[in-house]
């Protein structure tokens, strides 16, 4: 991904005011995520360390096969680094790709795939690490300029902001599914519907009833079923991408409606 494209995507992501506050798979988010700039060197070193560790695991597999390798170690090393929380709180789409890459390498080894396939999965994972580091660096720039709220500020103040937040929560659904936590992914889908989408669909139905109906079906049928039926991460991501496209349309409709709304006094 080109840096400019990354910058635009990260900007969109971090300005959404969505920052994770829940406990993460590897424990609570540390304070370091509120001062990314000061920790960039640490994150860079961690990425290099991660790549070395993955190379060692794959190298062991290449030399001695599965019996000589601990494929679960691929996931364990990811749980050990602060970079994990830095990317999770700033650019969830790449976070999902990293998990996808981690399991890609692990499953290729566990399935005793040819070394060429394992190496291909390794390359894909390394690309995700670098994309993630790029995203964190961009986020650090905005944070250092005071353009990003700290992680505690999470409540949207308008339906348009709520829709943006819903889009981000759907990214988290993909991330949790890629992390092999399908129940948590479904739970996020339903929580997002009940605590977020329900609050804006009244506004939205006045603008486009069919769009609301489509999203209702996506939230309550299409996305939960894609997760519960054991679809691939790409299939779940495809459902989410389609929903995010509809949410973008919804956001435009609500922005137009707000512009035409009468004043209170």
């Amino acid at each position: 991904m080109k840096f400019d494209t990354m910058k635009a995507l990260v900007l969109t992501a971090i300005f959404s005011l969505f920052m994770a506050t829940a406990a993460q798979a590897n424990g609570p988010i540390g304070d370091h995520v509120n001062d990314l700039q000061a920790h960039l060197d640490e994150y860079s070193e961690e990425v290099l360390w991660l790549i070395e560790q993955v190379e060692e695991i794959v190298g062991n597999y290449e030399r001695g096969g599965l019996a000589n390798t601990n494929p679960e170690r691929v996931v364990e090393i990811w749980e050990e680094v602060n970079f994990h929380a830095a990317i999770e709180t700033n650019y969830v789409p790449v976070y999902a790709s990293i998990w996808q890459g981690l399991f890609g390498v692990r499953q290729a080894i566990e399935g005793e795939q040819p070394i060429a396939d394992v190496r291909a999965a390794q390359v894909s994972l390394e690309q995700s690490f670098w994309q993630g580091l790029g995203a964190v660096k961009v986020a650090a720039q905005f944070q250092a300029r005071g353009l990003v709220a700290n992680i505690e500020d999470t409540e949207p103040t308008s339906p348009v902001e709520t829709l943006t937040q819903i889009g981000q929560l759907l990214d988290r659904v993909v991330a949790k599914y890629a992390e092999r936590l399908p129940e948590e992914a479904v739970s996020i889908v339903y929580d997002t519907y009940l605590s977020r989408f329900e609050g804006v669909e009244g506004d939205l139905i006045e603008q486009d009833a069919d769009l609301v109906e489509d999203l209702e079906i996506d939230f309550n049928v299409n996305l939960p079923q894609a997760i519960e039926n054991g679809s691939t991460v790409e299939q779940v991501r495809s459902v989410v991408n389609a929903m995010q496209s509809k949410l973008n349309r919804a956001r435009n409709l609500l922005e137009e409606a707000e512009a035409n709304r009468s004043s209170v006094f």
Partner: peptide, 18 residues
């Protein structure tokens, strides 16, 4: 409290502007 849509926010903003 989180509510229906964002219209309470419109009211609060209008009160502050006034």
């Amino acid at each position: 409290g989180r509510g229906e849509g964002g219209l309470y926010e419109n009211v609060l903003e209008a009160i502050q502007q006034r």
